[in-house]
Design a protein around this nucleic acid. Sequence first.
DNA 1: GCAAAATGTCAAG
DNA 2: TTGACCTTTTGCA
Length: 293
Amino acid sequence: MPEGNEIHRWAERHTKAFVGKKLHVEAPGGRFADADAIDGKTLKKIHAVGKHLGYEFGPDAILHVHLGRYGDWTEGVGELPPVKGALRVRLSRKPTGRAAADEATTRHGWYSEDDGSTSLEPADVDWIELRGPSDCSLYDREQWKKLLARLGPDALNGDDPEPAFAKIARSKTPIAALLMDQSVLSGIGNIYRAELLYRARLSPFLAGKDVPRKTVEAMWNDSIPLLKAGMVDRRIVTTLPKHRPHSEGKPLKPEVHYVYRRHGKPCWVCGTKVQRQEMAGRSLYWCPTCQAE
DNA sequence: GCAAAATGTCAAG
DNA sequence: TTGACCTTTTGCA
């Protein structure tokens, strides 16, 4: 369930490990018919836009990956592991034989308690495996162009935010729905939208056109360091240190969100119960006091 | 052991 | 607006 930070993080890691190299591409479960078309080819470049990844083997051979809600990459060193689970595709290079495969050869995208590594540095990766994506298919240049055309600016790509500001300023749609709309802004998902709204102390229900331009700009500017930090940390931390109490009974686990998935619990700042409500099929979380209409 | 939930998107009606 | 789709993990029996 990755948002833009996770996507860009994978792009960075996979670039270090694989770009410029001839890759073995296979789909042992037969779940990706076009694997043969790029097997043995050199990976030219990896694109990351919003929540989309593109592994470019040629102008008309771009492996498009969208992780959707459940998709995840697994990576490892050394020999390929036995095929397990619903494996969609895997990419590998010749193992360099460097780090012998020990028990810690595989890593997942999701934050785990015991994972202290926050560095992107040594990309000691010989293979990656993809499970559960909503899309894994080969795009030609037209398909890739069309994809880009429908995506709004991505803060992690240094895009000009003006088109997004303009759309918001014209829209009657609630700001919380606009932030999730990938044609307005790309890369923001359910956690970032809830937390950006909280940090701006903005009501999720306010129509886009009624949000002051300064507030929209502030949220865009706020999103950049949060997304970048999310790439390094492998999780999304939005609470300021002074608002980051340690949860009871688990002294070492700081609370990292203001409102996301905290419904029914007291707001860290004012003590009001955090609310939850469906909006466009997704759970929206907010503090009715700090984010009053 | 099973149901429900989880950081998402697209297409059909 | 809804349903379909993809898979793993968590929580409750």
